[in-house]
Design a protein around this nucleic acid. Structure first.
Lengths: 252, 252
DNA sequence: AATCCGACTTGATCGAGATCAATCGAAACG
DNA sequence: CGTTTCGATTGATCTCGATCAAGTCGGATT
């Protein structure tokens, strides 16, 4: 009990109510009693390591997953070994929502670095949400948010050029780090240039060149995976001046 | 009561249990009693006409909408008058799910042709789903399906070229028409070339040229908005041979 | 019937970003 | 500690689809 190692292992198994993510995670806004009930169905396994899968495309859908620490990427593999990266997931973010419908996963999820993950058996969660309106409401909200995010990603891919896409990506990470109490200016990328390019519909070389260019323009400092954003304002203006006169439709 | 006009008007206000869409719409799978309870909160207004809005970006979120007849497009307007088309919605499809989270719509919805629409006040629906587990389950399924669809759209935009995108679009329409009891081979497009291009991240001219090319190749017959798909198999193979060696990531 | 207007088509040209190729450099490993 | 490997960078070239520029066609208006 007084052994340091044991204590640090137990930290991983911390309950929701004591978890620093409680304000932006699934149990957000539940009253203490409801949070305890939810807490009881959540499984907290030992940490996963770089390259481990939470699930693979085609696996039976059993659980939703929440990143507690570390990061995860989700991607849709294609027959020929290629893949489309669908998202990068930071602490507090829910993974697997797209699997509810056909009861099997239609994407894979792989951890990008040593990560602690909470597992939530969906059948229990659904059961619980019948008798817990606030949890049901929270589920609707989170599902809806996922849709909104995918839609803005569709707009990014449909309307924005390479430069705007990368700037938007960096700003998204920045904002999410900030909300989690990390620096919005200074962080490490847990994904490769390849994965960033894949996610943004760009070639690796393009991503690499853009990092170089952004650095030359004084927007950021980059060294391998270490990123320092020097001018958020200007980075935002890179995204804003998007699609100014492309693909417009006259209102009919 | 015996007046033809009244009867035909009442047809629009047909209850879920008598609606031909019942097998692929929100009430799908509910038992008769539950279906009646749901039915009672659904509003069926008079038909809307081409160009009418169901809602606009920024509107307070009150209702979900279901297309009963006709078709609707959803799109995200941008300051400068441009827009990103997010989807085209056919009978039985639910609209507005992305608005639950922040209680206001973050896209607009406009009917493409004279359409009958069912309105479902969300607060009532949520209330109802507390005491109706099957409805809650159905909502989870539909929200999850929307996420899956957006994700495959992301893959389409991220990995597929113009030809593959248009083929995929036509096949998607074809399949959805088929499920609704319409011909999967012969249909009319309710959206313009502009809107198709916008949706697929392509210029109008590209869409137009592709229709011409597909016709030359004997894949389809096109005349204005009238489309006849002559070879679904081959059209599928156009989509399949996608992203064969682009943006692949070696499994690490 | 004339004309007007917007949707669509077709052709010519251009450019952003993909692809190809070479090199570098850091981490991993025997 | 040298060697291997894989990610990242940089340069050169090519290509798909955007853009620019005319036309064409059909439906609506008068």
């Amino acid at each position: 009990m007084s052994d340091r190692k044991v204590i640090s292992f137990e930290n991983i198994k911390i309950a929701c109510k004591s978890c620093s993510l409680v304000t932006l995670c699934l149990p957000m806004g539940l009253d203490p009693e409801d949070m305890d009930r939810l807490d009881r169905i959540i499984k907290r396994s030992r940490p996963l390591h770089r390259g481990d899968h939470l699930f693979r495309e085609g696996d039976a859908f059993q659980c939703l997953y929440i990143v507690k620490t570390g990061s995860v990427k989700t991607y849709a593999p294609s027959e020929d070994g290629g893949e489309q990266v669908l998202g990068f997931h930071l602490p507090g973010e829910l993974i697997g929502l797209d699997a509810i419908e056909n009861a099997s996963h239609n994407c894979s999820a792989k951890v990008l670095e040593t990560s602690a993950i909470c597992e939530i058996p969906f059948s229990h969660l659904e059961e619980l949400s019948i008798s817990m309106p606030s949890l049901q409401h929270q589920m609707y909200r989170l599902l809806s948010r996922e849709i909104s995010q995918d839609e803005s990603m569709l707009t990014l891919l449909g309307k924005n050029n390479a430069e705007e896409r990368l700037a938007a990506f960096l700003l998204s990470l920045s904002g999410r780090f900030k909300r989690r109490g990390f620096s919005p200016y200074d962080f490490y990328l847990s994904m490769s240039r390849h994965e960033i390019g894949n996610y943004l519909g760009l070639a690796v070389e393009t991503v690499s060149r853009l990092f170089t260019r952004f650095q030359e323009e004084g927007l950021l400092e980059v060294e391998r995976k270490h990123i320092q954003l020097l001018d958020l304002q200007r980075l935002e203006s890179v995204v804003k001046r998007s699609s100014s006169d492309t693909n417009q439709i006259q209102s009919t």
